[in-house]
Write a protein that binds this DNA or RNA. Structure first.
Length: 894
RNA sequence: GGGAGCUUAGCUCAGCUGGUUCAGAGCAUCUGCCUUACAAGCAGAGGGUCACAGGUUCGAACCCUGUAGCUCCCACCA
C-alpha cells in the first residue's frame, strides 16, 4: 500500500471525531473513578469562534485528554452564555435591518425575536469547537438562559436579597444619547480630545442676600468689587444643573467666603459654597462647580453636603425642562451658545485650550453622558471574604501566580456590584412594584401579591409591575460551575457531589474580576467550597504587531480557515507554540505552519517504519540493541519531565519537550541509528526485536502527542498495526515510566558529540557524506570501547573506528570531553587552520579553568560554598585540566 | 493619580533555591545537500555588555536601590 508523502488532515479529522462521538468517549457519568472536571468558559451564544477561543479551548482539550488517558473520569462541560448586551445589540441590529425599532415592540415580542435569533445562530460556536477536536461531553451542553439555569439565577437573587446583600441605589451610568440606553464601562471608549477649559465667574452673595442676574448694574458692581468666584469647566452647559460650588477647606484664597453663597448664571439659583478636601487646590482656580446629576464625583459631594440634584438632560441628549433654558436643544449646541451668552454678560474670565479624555459609545460613537439612575447592587464586602482568603492561602491556585497581587488588590478594594442592566434579554429582576413605588422581591407575581397583601390588602395584580431590567450576564455565569451540575435545583445530587469542585479553569486574565473572582465568591456562598482548584490564565491573542485582534482591524484570522489550511492538529500546535501562560501572545500564521510541518514529520516517521520489512531470523545487532536501550532510557527520562511540566502547568515547555523528543531524539537520532541500510540498491530488512521495540516506542510517542494532536495520533495509532475494536488511542493509558539507565544516556551524549564533530569536519573539509572515512580514538590502554561505536560508524559513514594509543599522523583531530580523535586525511591538511581551531578551543578551556581556579583559591568561597557546589568545582577543574592536556597533545603533534 | 508586571539572540520566550560549561530553546538567518521517510526535509554554522547605573555577596541574568522605556489593571480630577 502506498502511503501519501504528506499527512492529509482532511481525510482523518471528521472520521475520527465521528468515531469518538459514536463510541461516546467524551461522555462522563459519575462512577468510582477519580473525576477530572473542567467547565468551559461559556462563549457568547451567538458568537463565532475567534483566536482567543482557539487558545483556551485547545489548552482545555489538552488537559482533559491527558486526564482521560491517566484513567480519570474526564468531564468537560460545554455551553454558551446568553450575553445580554452583545446578543441584544445583535438582535436590535437585525430588527433595524428589517425596519423594526426595538421601541415599537413589546417586551414579549422582542424576546420572541431574540429567541428565534438564538435558535438560529446559537450553538454555531460549539459546532466550530468540534472542528478543533474539543472532546466536550456534548450531552451536558448548557445555556445560561435555559429554564433551570435562569431559575437558579432568580433563586440566588432572592436568597441574597433576603440575606440583606442586595439593595437598590442610585448610580451614575454611562448613557448613550444616540442609542438611548445605558452602556457598560467596557463599551465606553475613552479618547483624548482637544477641548477648551472655560473659566466662569459666579457672583458671591451673603446668606440673606438675593440678587437678580438680569439686573446688569448690580451684577457689574459685584464683578467690579471682586465679589465673585471663578470656576473652571469643560462642560459649561452643565452649569444649569449646578447646585453648589466647592473649595478646599485649607485654601487661604477662599477662607473669607465661608458661609456665603454663589449665584448660578442664567438660572439665578442661589447655591451654597461648600468646603471639601476632595478639591485639588492647584487645579484651575481651586474652585469646583458641583453638578450632582451629571458627574459621579459631584454626585458624591452632593450627597455628603446635602445638595439638590437637578437633571438637566433628556435621554436624547437635549436640555430638559429642568434645565430651565435652551430646553430641547442639543447639549453641544448649548455649549457653544451658553459660552456666547455668558461672554456677553461678562461672566467668562478666560478660555484655555485643554486636553482631556472623553468617553464615546463603542456602538454609536456618541459622546457618553454620565446620568443618574436607580440600579440594583450586590454588597461585596462580606461575601467576598472567603474568596480572597482561599486564593491567598493557596487553596485555589492562579497560574501564573503573578495574578495573585492583582486579585488581592481588587478584592481588598472591592466595589459593590451593579447587577441590573437596562435590557430585555436576560433574567428579569424578580422585584414587583406597586403604584406608589413600594416593592417586594418574589419569585412569581403570585408570591409578590401574597407578600404585598401582608402590608396592604387592597392590592391586586393590576397594580403590580415587575422591574423592567434584567440581571447582568455575569450574575448568571458566576453560578456556572454549580449550575451546570444542577447544584441549585438539586443541591445534593449525584453530579454536583461528584464533579464539584472542578479541577481546572482555563480563561483569560481580562475576566479575572468579572468572572473568576465572582465564581469563587458564589462557590463559597452556595457550596461552602471552591469552584475549581487551579485557574490557568492564558494571554490575550494579539497580532504580530501586538494589536488586539478585532473585527474593525480585520487582523483576526478565521480559525476555521486556519484549520482547513493547516489541519486542526497543526493549528493546535500553532496556538500552544506562542502561548506562554499569562503572557499575551503575538499570533502569526507561521506558528500553524510549524505545527503542520510537525504533523508531517511524524507522518513521515510512520511512513519510514511502516516501509521496513522484517526478517524474523535476523539477530539484533549490537548497534540496534544499544539504540533501543538508549531510546528507552531517553523516552522514560522525557516522559518524567513531561509529566512534571504538566503538573506545573508549564504548557509551552511541555510542548517543546514533546516536540524535541519526537523530532530530534526519535526521528533525527533513533530512527537514523536503526534504519536498515541499502545494499546494491535494495533495502535490507530489520530484525524483529528492534522492529517490535520501535513500534512500542512509536505507540508511546503517539500517546504523548495525543492530547496535543488528537487526530494524527489516532490515525497513525490505527495504521501502525491491526487493532481490536475499541483499542483507540483516546482511551489508551498514559505512559508509565521505569528505571532509567543514566550511564547510557551519558554515553550517548559523548557519542552524539563525536558524530556532530565528524559531520562538522566533513563539511568544513568538503568531504562528501557518501565517502567513507576512518576515525581513530585515542585511549592510553588501547581499548576504551563504547556501546555506541557501531552507531558512530553508521551515522558518520566510517569504514572503521579504531582505538589507538598514539596520535595519528596526517590527520584532522578534535577533542570531545577529554578524548582525542583523529581522522586520517590524505589531502594536504591546512596546518595553520587546524592550529587556529584547536588554539581557540584551548584558550576557551584555559579561560574556563582559570575562572574555576579563582573560585577554588578563594578561601571565602571554599569556606562558604555548599559541599555539592565545591565538589562540582573540583570536578570542573579536573575535567578542564584533562581536556587541556588532550588539546595540547594534539597541538604539539602539529 | 494609585497598583501590578515586564525589559535576556533578528522574532517569540525559558532560565524554578544566587553556584553544573549559564548565557539557553524554537522560529528566522547563513552555508552545503533533491542522501531511497520527510525540501513542509537533512547536515552544519553564526548570533546576546541579560535595558542602564550603583549596591549586597566568595559568587548576580537572578537579591536590594535608583533611572529609562513598555504593558496591563483600578480610579479617572473639574
Amino acid at each position: 500500500m502506498e502511503i501519501a508523502k504528506t499527512y492529509d488532515p482532511k481525510t482523518t479529522e471528521n472520521k475520527w471525531y465521528s468515531h469518538w462521538l459514536a463510541k461516546k468517549y467524551f461522555r462522563s457519568v459519575p462512577d468510582e473513578r477519580e473525576p477530572y472536571t473542567i467547565v468551559i468558559p461559556p462563549p457568547n451564544v451567538t458568537g463565532v469562534l475567534h483566536m482567543g477561543h482557539m487558545l483556551n479551548n485547545t489548552i482545555q482539550d489538552v488537559l482533559i485528554r491527558r486526564a482521560r488517558m491517566l484513567g480519570k473520569n474526564a468531564c468537560w462541560v460545554p455551553g454558551t452564555d446568553h450575553a445580554s448586551i452583545a446578543t441584544e445589540a445583535k438582535v436590535v441590529a437585525m430588527l433595524k435591518e428589517k425596519g423594526i425599532s426595538k421601541t415599537d415592540l413589546t417586551r414579549e415580542d422582542f424576546l420572541k425575536h431574540a429567541w428565534e435569533w438564538k435558535d438560529k445562530y446559537g450553538g454555531i460556536i460549539l459546532k466550530q469547537l468540534e472542528k478543533l477536536g474539543a472532546s466536550c461531553d456534548w450531552d451536558r451542553t448548557r445555556f445560561t438562559m435555559e429554564d433551570d439555569l435562569s431559575e437558579a439565577v432568580i433563586d440566588v437573587f432572592i436568597d441574597l436579597y433576603n440575606k440583606g446583600h442586595i439593595y437598590r441605589g442610585v448610580r451614575m451610568v454611562n448613557w448613550d444619547p444616540a442609542g438611548l440606553t445605558a452602556v457598560s464601562d467596557e463599551e465606553v471608549i475613552h479618547k483624548e480630545v482637544n477641548s477648551k477649559l472655560y473659566y466662569i465667574k459666579y457672583i458671591i452673595i451673603d446668606k440673606d442676600e438675593n440678587i437678580d442676574l438680569n439686573d446688569e448694574a448690580t451684577v457689574n458692581r459685584k464683578l467690579e468689587t471682586g465679589n465673585f468666584i471663578t470656576v473652571a469647566t469643560v462642560r459649561p452647559e452643565t452649569i444649569l444643573g449646578d447646585t453648589g460650588v466647592c473649595v478646599h477647606p485649607d485654601d487661604e484664597r477662599y477662607k473669607k467666603i465661608k458661609g456665603k453663597f454663589a449665584v448660578i448664571p442664567f438660572v439665578n439659583r442661589k447655591v451654597p459654597i461648600i468646603f471639601d478636601d476632595y478639591i485639588m487646590m492647584e487645579f484651575g482656580t481651586g474652585a469646583l462647580k458641583v453638578t450632582p446629576a451629571h458627574d459621579i464625583n459631584d454626585y458624591n459631594l452632593g450627597i455628603k453636603h446635602n445638595l439638590a440634584v437637578i437633571d438637566t438632560l433628556n435621554p436624547n441628549g437635549t436640555m430638559s425642562d429642568a434645565a430651565g433654558f435652551y430646553i430641547g436643544k442639543d447639549r453641544f449646541e448649548v455649549r457653544k451658545q451658553i459660552v456666547k451668552d455668558l461672554e456677553a454678560k461678562g461672566h467668562i474670565a478666560k478660555v484655555e485650550d485643554y486636553k482631556n479624555k472623553v468617553g464615546y459609545s463603542e456602538r454609536t460613537n456618541a459622546v457618553i453622558e454620565p446620568r443618574l439612575s436607580m440600579q440594583w447592587f450586590l454588597k461585596m464586602q462580606d461575601i467576598s471574604k472567603p474568596a480572597l482568603d482561599n486564593v491567598l492561602n493557596g487553596n485555589i491556585k492562579l497560574i501564573p501566580d503573578k495574578f495573585i497581587n492583582t486579585y488581592k488588590h481588587w478584592m481588598e478594594n472591592v466595589h459593590d456590584w451593579c447587577i441590573s442592566r437596562q435590557l430585555w434579554w436576560g433574567q428579569r429582576i424578580p422585584a414587583w412594584y406597586d403604584d406608589k413605588g413600594n416593592y417586594v422581591v418574589a419569585k412569581t407575581e403570585a408570591e409578590a401579591i401574597t407578600k404585598f397583601k401582608t402590608h396592604n390588602s387592597q392590592l391586586t395584580t393590576q397594580n403590580l409591575k415587575q422591574d423592567e431590567d434584567v440581571l447582568d450576564t455575569w450574575f448568571s455565569s458566576w453560578l456556572w460551575p454549580i449550575s451546570v451540575f444542577d447544584g441549585f435545583k438539586n443541591p445534593d445530587g449525584k453530579d454536583i457531589n461528584y464533579y464539584y469542585p472542578t479541577n481546572d479553569l482555563v480563561t483569560g486574565p481580562d475576566i479575572l474580576f468579572f468572572w473568576i473572582a465572582r465564581m469563587i465568591i458564589a462557590g463559597y456562598e452556595y457550596r461552602g467550597e471552591k469552584p475549581f482548584e487551579n485557574v490557568y490564565l492564558t494571554g490575550i491573542v494579539r497580532d504580530k504587531q501586538g494589536r488586539k485582534m478585532s473585527k474593525q482591524l480585520g487582523n483576526s484570522p478565521d480559525p476555521i480557515e486556519l484549520i482547513e489550511k493547516y489541519g486542526a492538529d497543526g493549528v493546535r500546535i500553532g496556538m500552544l507554540l506562542c502561548a506562554p501562560a499569562g503572557n499575551d501572545l503575538l499570533f502569526d500564521e507561521s506558528y500553524c505552519e510549524q505545527g503542520r510541518n510537525f504533523c508531517n514529520k511524524i507522518w513521515n516517521a510512520f511512513r519510514l517504519v511502516k516501509g521496513w520489512s522484517i526478517d524474523e531470523k535476523l539477530t539484533q545487532s549490537k548497534g540496534n540493541k544499544t539504540s533501543v536501550e538508549w531510546f528507552e532510557a531517553r523516552l522514560n527520562e522525557q516522559i518524567n519531565l513531561i509529566d512534571d511540566l504538566y503538573d506545573k502547568y508549564r504548557m509551552s515547555e511541555m510542548l517543546m519537550t514533546v516536540y524535541k523528543l519526537m523530532w530530534d531524539d526519535f526521528c533525527a537520532w533513533y530512527l537514523e541509528m536503526i534504519k536498515p541500510d541499502f545494499v546494491d540498491g535494495n533495502p535490507q530488512p530489520i530484525d524483529k526485536k528492534t522492529y517490535d521495540s520501535t513500534i512500542v516506542f512509536f505507540e508511546s510517542l503517539l500517546k504523548i502527542i495525543h492530547p496535543i494532536m488528537p487526530f494524527i495520533s489516532e490515525e497513525i495509532w490505527h495504521l501502525l498495526k491491526d487493532r481490536k475494536e475499541g483499542d483507540d488511542i483516546i482511551i489508551a493509558s498514559w505512559n508509565k515510566t521505569s528505571a532509567i539507565n543514566n550511564s547510557l544516556l551519558n554515553e550517548f551524549e559523548l557519542a552524539s558529540n563525536v558524530v556532530t564533530e565528524v559531520r562538522n569536519i566533513r563539511k568544513s573539509k568538503n568531504i562528501s557524506p557518501k565517502e567513507k572515512i576512518s576515525l581513530f580514538q585515542k585511549a592510553s590502554n588501547g581499548e576504551n570501547k563504547s556501546a555506541f561505536d557501531d552507531i558512530i560508524i553508521k551515522l558518520c559513514n566510517l569504514d572503521k573506528l579504531n582505538t589507538t594509543k598514539e596520535k595519528v599522523e596526517n590527520a584532522i583531530s578534535f577533542v570531545v570531553k577529554q578524548i582525542e580523535y583523529f581522522i586520517p586525511f590524505n589531502n594536504s591538511i591546512d596546518i595553520n587552520a587546524e592550529i587556529e581551531r584547536l588554539q581557540k578551543e584551548l584558550d576557551y578551556t584555559q579561560g574556563f579553568l582559570k575562572s574555576v581556579m579563582i573560585k577554588l583559591s578563594n578561601e571565602r568561597f571554599v569556606a562558604n560554598a555548599k559541599p555539592g557546589i565545591l565538589d562540582n568545582e573540583n570536578k570542573k577543574k579536573a575535567d578542564a585540566e584533562a581536556r587541556i592536556k588532550a588539546i595540547e597533545e594534539v597541538l604539539s603533534s602539529l
